[in-house]
Amino acid sequence: MSKNTIMAGLAVFVLAVLSPFWFNLITTTQAAPKPELLGKAATAKKCVLDKYNMRAEHMYLLDVWRNSVVRLGDRKYTGTNGQTFNMSLSTGENSCLGCHEDKAKFCDSCHNYASVSPYCWDCHTNPKEIK
């Protein structure tokens, strides 16, 4: 192969490897979302898990809840702080979205940032949208 072809290929490769750097230079970079507690959640001060466990484990917990509710009919969950919760994502006052009222802030901001598209909302609806 001719030297020019090799150098051209090498240049393309180097650009590809450096793409995370120059891509963020030429596009506007979205800042990391700052989690904030709104509405009822701000005053309740009680959640099923503590803050960092919640961030890391919530999807696993929801999966366990789904199996528990759908397969076993067990709808009660006792959190680490001793409080009992209704195992539900979106139904009733005592559910996830019953307390964290703003889905866009509570769910979507981080999911969008991390490019996660969970299929929760294929079946569930945001209670705010029903009215």
Binding site: N24, A32, A114
Partner: peptide, 18 residues
């Protein structure tokens, strides 16, 4: 074991944007 993915993305984005 699960990790705080937003925290990790803040680190990696920090690397990519210097």
């Amino acid at each position: 074991t699960k990790v705080d993915i937003i925290g990790i993305k803040e680190l990696t984005m920090g690397l990519a944007t210097f």
